[in-house]
């Protein structure tokens, strides 16, 4: 497929750079995985706040989610990379800024995933646990979380895919990940082929993940009861 689109000559030109592009893909994967881990932390903490009974933190959680979902990722990234250092006299490397912005971005979607996961567990589960004298934290950990994960985990896979794709935006602040690697190579060999190879690498990562996500979702759908005990 690559040959048909780019032509033989172009593929020969990009051949020496494939290793470089794969390295770029690894960086993309790394920063996305790190951001995923951090969004998970944000998601769990803020998600629990959002489903709690406390009004003010609840409203704050909603504002955070709404804000992140209504502003382009690029603007969030610019804000973190160019804006925050001026205000707080800190300096971010592109890597740190990208990780921070992507975590905040993924975190907002994760809050929703965690919230809908927790809300998918019926009230009666809480009541049953309370009737047995089990407290909030233990109920959350042993009863609710294992069931919520059926909804949250497939959504988390989707968020991981968004982060993989979204991390390409960090190339704009000079973070050399997969897309920026491809653009750099393009600028030296003047060929579309590095972008094409980058596209294929993105596809392999994201499509592989989405297939995996589909499997996870199906498994949880059919094995719902077993998963609940996990």
């Amino acid at each position: 497929m690559v040959r048909e689109v780019a032509g033989d000559g172009l593929m020969v030109a990009v051949a020496p750079y494939v290793g470089l592009l794969v390295r770029g893909a690894m960086i993309t994967l790394e920063v996305s995985a790190l951001a995923l881990a951090l969004s998970l932390v944000i998601g769990v903490v803020v998600g629990m706040v959002a489903t709690s009974r406390f009004r003010l933190p609840q409203a704050a959680a909603r504002v955070y989610v709404e804000l992140v979902r209504s502003v382009p990722l690029l603007v969030q990234l610019f804000f973190v990379y160019y804006g925050l250092p001026l205000m707080f006299r800190v300096n971010f490397s592109p890597y740190q800024a990208a990780t921070a912005a992507l975590s905040l971005y993924g975190g907002a979607y994760m809050v929703e995933a965690v919230r809908s996961g927790i809300q998918s567990v019926g009230r009666n589960q809480w009541e049953a646990a309370r009737a047995l004298g089990v407290g909030y934290w233990r109920t959350m950990a042993h009863v609710v979380a294992p069931q919520a994960i059926r909804v949250t985990l497939p959504a988390a896979v989707g968020i991981f895919i968004s982060l993989l794709k979204g991390s390409s935006v960090a190339s704009i602040i000079g973070f050399v990940e997969l897309l920026q690697t491809a653009v750099n190579i393009r600028n030296s060999i003047f060929s579309l082929s590095p972008l094409l190879v980058a596209g294929i690498l993105y596809f392999l990562m994201c499509y592989g993940l989405s297939r995996f996500g589909g499997r996870v979702e199906r498994r949880f759908r059919y094995g719902a009861v077993e998963a609940g005990r996990g």
């Binding site: 393009r186 003047f190 579309l192 972008l195 596209g199 993105y202 994201c206 989405s210």
Partner: peptide, 22 residues
């Protein structure tokens, strides 16, 4: 559908703007 949903949009902005000159 699958190819486009699993690749970043920035790639296409670059690709269409720079790439097609070739």
């Amino acid at each position: 559908v699958e190819a486009l949903r699993n690749t970043p949009d920035l790639l296409y902005i670059y690709g269409l703007y720079f790439g097609l000159t070739q």
